[in-house]
Computed example of a mutant assay.
Amino acid sequence: MSALLEQGLNRVDWIRSRMALLARVRKDFATSQPFKGKTIGVSLHLEPKTAVLIETLAAGGARIVGTGNYGSTQDDVVAALRHWGMTMYGQREIGWDEHLGNVRKVVEHQPDILLDNGADLVALAVEMGVADKIIGGTEETTSGDDRLRADFAGKVPFPVIVINDSPLKQIVENKHAVGQGNVESIMRMTNLMINGRRFVMVGYGWCGRGMAQYIRSFGGQVAVVEKDPIKQLEAVMDGFRVGTLDALAPWGQFFCTATARERVVGSAAFAKMPDGAILANSGHFPTEIDTDALRSDAKSVRKLGSMIEEFTMQDGRKLILLTEGRMIELAGVEAKGNSIEAMDLGFMLQSLSLERVATRPKSLALGPQAVPVDINRTIAAAMVADFAPDA
């Protein structure tokens, strides 16, 4: 056994031992076999927690064909999945074109069901003209949901349950797990204190709310940039300063994006940021910070570490970019991702939603839609029983 495989198997063993909700699902699936005879195509961050999800689906009879998301694949976990007989493409250090090629390979296996993260699988299935052969699927992210509704409205001839629309995922995973995990990733990567530092949080959705809350809990000062007036009001009522990016750019020392939108921080903001400002992205796609513009605007660029780049601007100011603008929590060195308990809940949502797609597809509408209410209630009750047994 190679050292890489042994490391992957050991890491997955630890994670599996702490995911009680998925253990229940795996036991039920082993008996009910909801995916027997079906292929599930997967495009997902490949790390130990997702490996436990994938083996849970396999326990339900599924044949798994998958690939990792761009920049977050953990090679030891891929080795473990392949050891278990699953067809897995991808590795950590690949380019964007190779990543899309791996997504294409998954679709070429003609999966019956899709487990998507960013709508890459759906996009290629539509483009390749094979979408009508798919029973249905799930989409993990807001970024993917936005893409489905904007770019593929009326073009997806099967149901897609959007996991991020679940209030359970929004509260437990996005606000608390992503919020805490992203702040901890910034601290680990930079080795800097949060206390007293000035943070500009661009986006006040569930992930942005969580980051703002945890930054403040560490003693940081937080200002929020948000276009939605209702979310602006919520940020004000939560005690945060609210303003435009143009107004806050000279004030901030850290700039964090969580919007699911492209190029929300660009040249106009770069020109006003103070010397030493640090930029980090929490969003699924590496496009929220306009890194092309940053490279074009800079006089020179140098690496300060494996995931830290220093940009010297024309006027001599230095701006710092983390993880090349990729998702801070999973693209960084020693990336841990969200907490085990949060992902246990999120992947129970995934598992039961995929079971619904496989066994009762006609009960669902075509195109993107929320997690069925009964699934949310079942999982909420199970998690309360684990966390607060006296409730």
Rank of each mutant, 00 (worst) to 15 (best):
T190A: 10
R197S: 06
G205W: 11
L192S: 12
M193F: 14
M189D: 11
N191S: 15
I215Y: 03
G219T: 09
S217D: 09
S217Q: 14
F199T: 05
M211R: 06
R188V: 11
R197V: 00
G210I: 08
F218S: 08
G203Q: 05
G196P: 01
N191G: 14
M193L: 15
R188Q: 13
N195F: 10
N195E: 12
G196W: 01
G208E: 10
R216G: 01
S217P: 02
M189Y: 00
L192D: 12
R188C: 07
G208K: 00
M189K: 13
R198A: 07
G208M: 00
N195K: 07
V200M: 13
R209D: 07
M201V: 15
G220V: 04
M189E: 14
I215N: 04
G196T: 04
M201Q: 14
A212E: 03
R209V: 10
G203R: 02
G196Q: 04
R197N: 05
R209M: 14
N191E: 14
G219K: 03
M189G: 15
Q221S: 11
T190K: 10
Q221D: 10
Y214R: 12
I194T: 14
G208V: 05
Q213L: 14
I194Q: 05
T190W: 08
Y214K: 08
R198V: 03
M193Q: 06
Y214D: 02
I215P: 02
Y214V: 00
N191C: 15
Y214M: 06
A212K: 03
S217G: 08
F218P: 06
V202D: 09
C207L: 00
Q213K: 13
Q213A: 13
S217E: 12
V202S: 10
Q221L: 15
M201R: 02
V200S: 08
G210R: 08
G210T: 09
M189P: 05
G196K: 00
F199V: 08
Y214P: 06
Y204L: 07
T190S: 13
G196I: 03
Q213M: 13
V202I: 14
Q213V: 05
G219Q: 08
L192H: 10
G220E: 04
M211N: 14
N195P: 01
R216M: 07
W206S: 11
G220F: 02
R198F: 02
Y214H: 13
Y214C: 02
Y204I: 06
T190G: 10
G205T: 10
L192P: 04
G210W: 09
C207Q: 00
Q221E: 13
I194P: 05
R216C: 09
R198I: 02
G203D: 09
